[in-house]
Computed example of a mutant assay.
Amino acid sequence: MVAHRGASAVAPENTLAATRLALAARADWIETDTQPSRDGVPFVLHDRTVTRTTNGTGAIRKLTAARLKKLDAGSWFARRFTGARLPTLAQQLAYVRRHDGRMIVEIKGPHTKTQILAVVRVIRAQQMTGRVLLQSFDEVSLRRVRQLAPELPIALLRTTIDKDPVAVSKRLGLAAYNPKGSALLARPGVVARLHTAGVAVFAWTEDSAARWKRLDAIRVDGIITNKPADLVHWKSRQVGI
């Protein structure tokens, strides 16, 4: 049960408030996104720009860490979240570690070797190497993770499923293969084949009980959702039957 950008249906996405609510809901994982500031500090943000989810404007990679730390990342969502900050990856990892949680961190967009190394150093410094799964759509970034930090498990994000996802997984050294839920339901047999190859499968991003039921039936390892409290409640009802 994976909280997409935290409990993003009820709190501003990718903030510590969203993380706190997801952990309180007993989500197994917190999914988040990381991108570097202009001066190379990994921050937590989904979009290429800060415009949609903060009171600032502009591309995150063109703004300094000092500027990013001053932005209000909560008032766009609801008045009661006014003053919530855009967390650094280090801050979010530290918060999750203190609450015994686990994180799926998406490397958002292409990253240079130096930028990947910055992410790796933060994970190591926060003593989260055993509780982080790094995922990305960008294969080059994943290969760089394997080169720089072979101890960190990696996952490939896909909108559609490869002709041979097992071969792709072996080529990249994946711990997990994470396709869009609808694509996975169109080819449910790939789950068993990936499991046989020792690769986990996480489906994104599904918010309805009907889809959770279908994904659970094909034995996915995780469902990424904007509504972690609802998913936890739904799953507890299934276990109780």
Rank of each mutant, 00 (worst) to 15 (best):
K69W: 05
G101S: 05
V50F: 07
P153F: 11
A22M: 04
S8K: 01
F43Q: 01
P110R: 14
A186I: 01
T88S: 15
L215E: 02
V199R: 10
G83T: 01
I161P: 06
H111Q: 13
T114F: 09
R52C: 06
V44K: 00
R131I: 05
P165D: 09
R20P: 00
R187C: 01
G240W: 08
S141Q: 11
S169W: 08
E139A: 11
F81R: 09
R131A: 13
N55T: 13
H111Y: 11
K235D: 04
R26L: 09
V132N: 05
F137C: 09
G109F: 10
V140G: 07
W76T: 08
R61M: 07
L133Y: 01
D216W: 13
V191D: 10
K170V: 11
K113S: 12
T57P: 00
P12R: 10
I154M: 12
V220Q: 07
V239S: 11
F137D: 04
D164E: 11
P179C: 06
L185F: 11
K69Q: 15
T88I: 07
R143Q: 14
Y177K: 13
P153D: 08
T34N: 08
Y95D: 13
V232Q: 11
L157Y: 10
Q147G: 00
R52I: 06
G58T: 02
L142P: 06
H111T: 00
A200F: 08
L194F: 10
A11D: 05
T88R: 08
W212Q: 06
A73E: 09
R97S: 05
D28Y: 00
A73S: 11
R146Y: 06
S208Q: 13
Q91R: 12
H233K: 15
V10E: 13
T159L: 13
P153R: 10
R158Y: 04
R80E: 14
A118K: 11
A90M: 03
T34A: 03
R144L: 15
H4N: 07
L23Y: 01
R121V: 00
G83V: 05
L174Y: 08
N178H: 08
S75V: 11
I161D: 03
V239E: 13
L23K: 01
K180N: 13
D162E: 14
K69H: 10
Q135V: 14
V220F: 09
A167R: 15
H195Q: 09
V120W: 06
E206Q: 13
P36H: 04
R131E: 04
K213D: 12
A210T: 12
H233A: 15
R67T: 14
T159F: 11
A18P: 03
V2N: 12
R131D: 12
T34P: 04
S75K: 14
T159I: 11
Q91I: 03
W76F: 15
H233S: 14
Q35L: 14
M103R: 02
D230A: 15
G56P: 07
I223Y: 04
E206N: 06
P12L: 09
T88W: 10
A3N: 02
R237P: 00
G74P: 09
T19A: 13
R80K: 15
Q92M: 15
L156W: 05
I154G: 03
P12W: 09
V119M: 12
A176S: 14
L133C: 09
T57G: 01
H4P: 06
V145I: 15
Q126G: 01
P110G: 01
V166N: 07
R26Q: 14
P150L: 08
